[in-house]
Design a protein around this nucleic acid. Structure first.
Lengths: 141, 141
DNA sequence: TCATTTGTATCAAAACGAGTTACAAAGTTA
DNA sequence: TAACTTTGTAACTCGTTTTGATACAAATGA
């Protein structure tokens, strides 16, 4: 019943990358800020890389940086990269086909699911990483 | 990363209750349609009862029925009753307070979380159980 | 009094997430 | 070339959550 923390950690990490401009950050360094293990961070960065949000490099002076400017990364992309994108799941076991409700409810829920998930994606899309940076660090003195 | 199935099962069960008008349905009967165990259904019905959506009775001729007309139960109430109501969770371990991002990101995420969750609740609230019944069983011949 | 049904405790099994160790592969530096 | 750094990923453990099952007291109705 508890929700997923991946999105929060992803936003945290991406905000740090955004603030470090073009220099690579190491998973070790990010892990310290997030208060977790470097491998956990690298796994997360792997998802973000698949979503084309970050670029990682192996080797000395390696690390990770954003693939684009923070104002061109919106939170819908982040959410999509690190979650299944579903607010609720359909039945894991197919309901009884002997029951009229069982036979038809899945199709109805499926349409509802799509509509809810689209609504969430649209809301997330209203914010870019650049917006978040402004919120985290409001206008410097 | 997988989402919760409780909401789908709740909608399934509530739809059956709505279609049975005022007669009580047994957890045994509901479990057959959902294709699970009666105790699992009774646990779910417990949450729905706490949310004031259904009324259960023990004893012979006992069972569960809706607490109101299907057109007065909206899906936001259902979602609230069976889930934590959060699309994503905040950090489970507090981020490092030594890092400027770590210090401030939680408050930002918290505001975002509230906004997203409110958006979802509003979308769910657009549908009543009566609407769903129409979708499951469109106008009879 | 007896049969039925819920509510809930308790247990076991399955599924899942998070953290850890380890190491090959890729890259840098000298 | 050699030494060093860093990622990516496999493999494992551990704790938590979810699901299904059994059991039984309490409530209800006949």
């Amino acid at each position: 019943m508890a929700a997923n923390t991946q999105f929060s950690i992803a936003v945290h990490v991406l905000t740090m990358l955004a603030r470090s401009e073009n220099s690579n950050l190491k998973s070790d360094y990010l892990a310290k800020s997030v208060n977790t293990n470097p491998v956990v961070v690298r796994r997360l960065l792997g998802h973000l890389a698949q979503g084309d949000l970050v670029i990682s490099q192996t080797g000395a002076n390696g690390g990770t940086r954003l693939s684009r400017c923070p104002d061109r990364i919106n939170l819908a992309e982040v959410y999509k990269a690190v979650s299944c994108g579903e607010v609720f799941a359909l039945h894991s076991k197919a309901p009884s086909q002997d029951c009229p409700v069982g036979r038809n409810i899945e199709a109805v829920l499926c349409r509802l699911q799509k509509e809810i998930d689209r609504t969430v994606a649209e809301k997330f899309a209203e914010y870019t990483l650049a917006d978040l940076i402004m919120m985290v660090q409001p206008a410097r003195v």
